[in-house]
Nucleic acid binder design. Structure first.
Lengths: 171, 171
DNA sequence: GTTGAAAGGCCCTCTGC
DNA sequence: GCAGAGGGCCTTTCAAC
C-alpha cells in the first residue's frame, strides 16, 4: 500500500473513527452531559435511538471516558490553585510522585519536556497546605528544585473538546 | 463574639455550609455522576429522597457547577498536551488572552503570581497547531516571553475533590 | 439510518411519620 | 431526617421499513 509512502500521514492515526456528527455530540456532552438524547438528536439532525447508538459506541471505544460532576473549588473550601513544577536529577522520582495521586489536593500529574520534569496541578485549602506539600516533595530523592505558580484568577477551565473541522483550528 | 479574636479562623469562611455527608456525596459524584441516588444513599446511610434533596441543594448553591462527559484527548485527535506560560509587561494582555478561550484547543486560562503572568493549558492535534498558537500569542502587545511545557505523559487528571476530614490532608 | 410502540427504570414529588 | 407510593419522563429495546 501507499500508506508508508505518504509523508502527510500521521505516524499513529487513531484506531477509532469519529466523524463530524460524533464530534458535535462530544462537544455537547463535554459541555453538559445531562442533555437528553432527543435534544442531542435535533442538534445533529438524528433521532434519539440513533444518537443513543453513537454515544454507546463512543463510550465503548473509550472516547468518552466517564461522566463527572464538576465542583467549585472555592465552595468546597479549596480556593488555592497552584501549578508545581518539579525538577529532578534522574527518573527515580516517578514512584514517589505517583503516590501524590492519593492526595485529594492533587488533581493532575504530568511528566514534561523542557526545563522541568514533573508538573502538578493542586487545589488546596490554603498556603499552609501548600507549604506542607512542598516540604513533602522536597523530601523525595533526586529533587533538584521546585517552582510554584499560585493562580490568582481562573478565566477558563474545562475538559478536552474535539476540533470541529479537519482543516480549521478554532471556534 | 470571639470570632475575630481567634487567629485560627480563616479570613473568608465559605458562605455555603457543607458537612461530611455532603463531602462524601461530592466525591462520589465527582468520580462518577451517573451513580443512582439509591446507590449514593447506601454509601452515606441515607435514603434516595434525602440524597436527592442534598444534591439539589448543592447544585442550587453552586457547589456542583455542572455535569460533563470526560473525553480521551488522544482518541479525539488531540494527543499533544502543553502548558504555556506567558510573561507580559503590563496587564493589557488580559483581553487578548481571554479571546483564546474561543479556541477549542485552550482548556484553561489562569492568571498567576510568580515569574509568569498567564498560564494556559492547551490540547492540540500536533506541534504545528502549537506553533501557530504561540505565533498568535507573540503577536499580542506586551508579551515579553513565552515558555512552553509539552507533556510527555499524564499520570493523573481529574477535577476538584473535597477533603474528607477537617483536620486531615489526605486520602 | 428511520418510525412507532412498548417495557422498564429511575427521577422526583408528595404524603405521612 | 425516614418510609412508601405514585406519576411521569426518559432511556432502551424491539419491531418493520
Amino acid at each position: 500500500m501507499a500508506k508508508e509512502m505518504n509523508p502527510v500521514k500521521r505516524d499513529r492515526p487513531p484506531p477509532v473513527s469519529i466523524d463530524d456528527v460524533d464530534r458535535k455530540l462530544l462537544r455537547l456532552l463535554a459541555e453538559d452531559a445531562t442533555r437528553k438524547y432527543a435534544e442531542l438528536g435535533e442538534a445533529v439532525h438524528l433521532t434519539a435511538p440513533a444518537v443513543h447508538e453513537r454515544v454507546k459506541r463512543l463510550k465503548r471505544d473509550g472516547v468518552i471516558t466517564g461522566t463527572v460532576a464538576t465542583l467549585d473549588g472555592k465552595k468546597i473550601g479549596c480556593p488555592l490553585l497552584a501549578f508545581i513544577h518539579v525538577d529532578t536529577d534522574g527518573w527515580g522520582l516517578t514512584d514517589s510522585v505517583l503516590e501524590l495521586g492519593g492526595l485529594a489536593d492533587v488533581e493532575e500529574i504530568h511528566s514534561a519536556a523542557g526545563d522541568t520534569c514533573v508538573i502538578l496541578k493542586v487545589r488546596m485549602r490554603g498556603t499552609q497546605d501548600l507549604e506542607a506539600l512542598l516540604a513533602r516533595i522536597y523530601r523525595f530523592e533526586g529533587v533538584r528544585s521546585i517552582r510554584s505558580h499560585v493562580v490568582l484568577n481562573t478565566y477558563l477551565e474545562r475538559g478536552p473538546k474535539p476540533e470541529i473541522e479537519i482543516g480549521g483550528s478554532a471556534e
